[in-house]
Design a protein around this nucleic acid. Structure first.
Lengths: 158, 158
DNA sequence: GTTCCTGCAAAGGTTTTGCACCATA
DNA sequence: TATGGTGCAAAACCTTTGCAGGAAC
C-alpha cells in the first residue's frame, strides 16, 4: 500500500537534464536570449533538481567557475516562474525556494524540517485525487496547489 | 457528496469570540500579562477571524481607537504562535498571514487568489485522512501540514 | 515595587529596481 | 548594430532586536 514514494536524488538528476533542454527551448521560443547568468542558473537548477533558494544558487555559482550576481539569479528565477518552468515554494520565515516543474509533469510536494530547513519531496496519488476534487468545488478558478508537511528530521530531534 | 465546506464570515466571527476567551486563559495560565497591545491584537484577531498579516493588523489598530506599534503586533503574534493559538501561513512573495487555531480544533486550509490576495478557508474530511496517512509514512516526525490552493477569484478574472 | 510589556528606532535578511556596460542574436 | 541581459549598488520590503519608559500584577 505504498502509494506515497520518496524520491531519490539520482532520479531528479536524470529528469533534470530533460528539464534544462525543455526550458532552453521554451525560453528561446518565447523570445528570450541565452545570456550567461540565465544559462548558468538553468544548468545549476537542472543538476540540483530544484529545491534551492536564490541566494544558495548564487553562492554555488560564485564558488564554481561562473560567478553570477544575486540580482540576476532572482531575475532568472522570476522569468522561469512566469514561463511555468519553476514553481515558487514559500516557507514561513525562510527564503522562497524554487522547484522544477518537470516536463512529464509528475507533480510532487514537500516535507520540511522546521529545525534545519531540510526538504524531502514526496508524491501521493490519493492526495492528488482529493486535491482535484476540492479544486472543482472551489469558488475560485484554481491554477495550482501547494502541500507542505512541517516536522522535525531525525538529526534535529537528536 | 459535499464533504468540502466553505465557511461563511459570520460563522468565523461567532467562534472568534470563544477563541479570544480561550486565548486569554491560556496566556494568563502560561504566566503572560494582558498588556494593551497584546489584548488589542487578540481582540482584533478574534473579530477578524484570522487570515491577516501583521502589518494589516497594526494598520487597522492605528486607524481604530487603539494604536499599537508594529513590533508589538509581531511580538504578540509570535507568542500566540508559540502557544499554539495561531498558525503562521506562508505565501510566496507576500507577508506571512496568521490564522486562528480554534478551540474545537476544526482544522482547515485556504484558497488564495493570486491577483488580490483574497483568502477563503475550507475544510475537507477526505483530505485530512489522506494527510494523516502520508504523515505516518513520512521520514520526519510531522507536526503539522499546510495545504494551499492558488487561483484567481471571480473579481480578478473579470 | 518588581517584573514584564510596549513603542520607537535601528538593524537584519530577502527581494526588487536603476543604471551603465556588455553580450547575444 | 539594436536590443536585451548583466552586475553592482541602492532601495524597498518584511521582520526582529535593543533599549528606555510605562503598565500590570
Amino acid at each position: 500500500m505504498a502509494k506515497t514514494r520518496q524520491r531519490g536524488h539520482d532520479h531528479s538528476q536524470a529528469t533534470g537534464e530533460e528539464w534544462v533542454t525543455a526550458a532552453r527551448t521554451k525560453l528561446s521560443s518565447s523570445g528570450y536570449r541565452a545570456g550567461g547568468a540565465r544559462s548558468a542558473v538553468l544548468e545549476l537548477l537542472g543538476s540540483e533538481g530544484g529545491c534551492c533558494n536564490a541566494d544558495d544558487l548564487a553562492q554555488e555559482l560564485r564558488d564554481g567557475d561562473r560567478s553570477v550576481g544575486t540580482a540576476s539569479v532572482y531575475r532568472a528565477l522570476s522569468l522561469l516562474a512566469d514561463l511555468g518552468l519553476v514553481q515558487k515554494v514559500a516557507v514561513a520565515g525562510a527564503p522562497t525556494r524554487f522547484e522544477l516543474i518537470l516536463p512529464g509533469g509528475e507533480h510532487h510536494h514537500h516535507i520540511v524540517c522546521e529545525g534545519c530547513g531540510k526538504t524531502v519531496p514526496f508524491s501521493d496519488e490519493k492526495l492528488e485525487v482529493v486535491m482535484s476534487e476540492i479544486s472543482e468545488r472551489a469558488p475560485f478558478r484554481v491554477d495550482s496547489h501547494d502541500v507542505t508537511l512541517l516536522g522535525t528530521c531525525d538529526a534535529c530531534r537528536g
